[in-house]
Design a protein around this nucleic acid. Sequence first.
DNA 1: CTGAAAGCGCTAACAC
DNA 2: GTGTTAGCGCTTTCAG
Lengths: 353, 353
Amino acid sequence: MPSRPTPPSRGEPPKPTTLADVAAAAGVAISTVSRTFSNPGRVNATTREHVEQAARRLGYRPNAAARALESGRTSTLGVIVSDITNPHFFTLIRGAQHQATTAGYTLLLGDAHLSRQAEQQVIERTLTSVDGLVVAASRLPTAQLADYARVKPIVLVNRVSEGLSSVVTDHTDGPRQIVEHLHSLGHRHLAFLGGPRESWSAAKRWSAIAASALDLGVTITRLGPFPAAIEGGGAAADAALGTRATALIAHNDLLAIGALRRLAERGVAVPDDVSVTGFDDIFGADFCAPPLTTLAAPLDDAGRQAVDLLIAAATRRAGPPQRLTLPAHLQIRGSTGPAPKPAGHRGSAAPAG
Amino acid sequence: MPSRPTPPSRGEPPKPTTLADVAAAAGVAISTVSRTFSNPGRVNATTREHVEQAARRLGYRPNAAARALESGRTSTLGVIVSDITNPHFFTLIRGAQHQATTAGYTLLLGDAHLSRQAEQQVIERTLTSVDGLVVAASRLPTAQLADYARVKPIVLVNRVSEGLSSVVTDHTDGPRQIVEHLHSLGHRHLAFLGGPRESWSAAKRWSAIAASALDLGVTITRLGPFPAAIEGGGAAADAALGTRATALIAHNDLLAIGALRRLAERGVAVPDDVSVTGFDDIFGADFCAPPLTTLAAPLDDAGRQAVDLLIAAATRRAGPPQRLTLPAHLQIRGSTGPAPKPAGHRGSAAPAG
DNA sequence: CTGAAAGCGCTAACAC
DNA sequence: GTGTTAGCGCTTTCAG
């Protein structure tokens, strides 16, 4: 019988049971009932038993707002993602959700809609309802983030900012691995399909890739910025076909998958004519056609760690900001292969040879 | 200068500005400040201006808990999904999130981890923190859901239950379309890859499909239940290959995609040897190999509608429960094709009526 | 070990 | 229009 919450008083307009009701029913003081729940050790076993029974009978459910008002703690954590449409963040949310639940917290979800202004709004709105905020891929200026962090603990994901805690997936070694992989396959001309201009990780990815390319002596063309969505991949692919590139490094998997699709439409074979790589290893990257070679980032881990950091910050007296970097690894699949022979069979798609 | 929230008192331990602080600074009563924010019409324009300025200067941010305690409304809506891992729910969440934001609500996210007990827990936990709950694919008994609905408005998604509002994607006509599609392609032996036992939609899908199969005179074998995840699809495909079925109807896209993958591993050509269909049209269904024929359900719409219903219920005095059915449509892609010619003598695939 | 009472920050009557 | 005041349900000293 797991469900016996309905009070005997069966009025249709629901008037929730309060601590006072339980106290009256059990014939004890309000404070005793309160203690029974928040500090069971401080109350006589028999009394507690009695109180608990009354509470159960009346279907008592503690009022979260009242508790939060008094204690200042909401047992709620916020997660703000820059684009809830992106499966990439879905993984993060899942990790955060799991860890939060485990630690007895509830998750509030916010979406910044890829807009700085929307991000600001949603943070403002949620800031007082939570004990802390995970902000993923923030596009807000450093100073503003710092301001918010003075109000409630904040942990950034895939963005680092002066004085704030952050969890990022590796953005130097990882990108390098992509370039090395391509280089070892014989590719000498690369194209980078760039992500959004305000994106911190987009900038980091590009600079790491550009540096690696320079080191290895391969040329690379930066294209874009493109919207980091499947639709963006089409334009990106078209743009890339206008270059000499034999391999496309997309800013993320969405873009890469979009590019894959567009290339197929145009009859360009992957990886025979062109190789394609992505970032993140999102859901679907392993079953698209061909499966995508991508820098797999442990985003669920990032979510978990961010929540851990956040809880630590919200619980203990604010320690120094932490910066975590999570390792990424290159997941090699079918979308990358040896570079095509230079003079050979690139089909009709290559304008300049 | 969008960021000037830090109070002049620059103590490291952040002590939030209250209504009283603003009132003192502006030289007015607390209630005037309160009205300035919650009922601007009731206050003199000059005064309001003055108050707003003071509030801005002090970085005032209304305390959500206090507001909720007094008013009884939290401006927060909860969404409980049965499995946050499933991209299908992600779409729902997105729709709900969008609509909630638009209406000035914040979203709380809960995950039931595919477990009845976990679902109960998360609902219990969130019930008092929200103005209402969207519960997707609930596995809880009807009576229990009804109990919860007495506490706060509840809208079910893809589950209907006596006396509760619900939004479901079509589960009779839609499944029938799948069977008809397959039948018209000449398939006469089908296999159904069943979803979880407690799932309401799993049951509905099966019964609609079984009925259609009967009507059309095609045989169908029910297999499973399988976990509604990609991993489940492997076992499901193997099981299906042990039958005479030339077409596989998976309970959902995850299962279907898993089956696709397993079939490829085993060298079974899709759709030449076997056709495969799914449900939902999740992210990835259009770029897997081959692209999946699936019954596309407007889950983001469902999320939006559910939130609308919820807000209506939470706002106006509880009207009668509403039941919405959203139309689904068959998205035909590459995973279905003509039935293979039988080895035996069963003649042509012409529909015999 | 238990009870009484003071608020947490805010809203909503109700006065002025 | 604006100020005063009484709680919302709970936690938490402080007495007993």
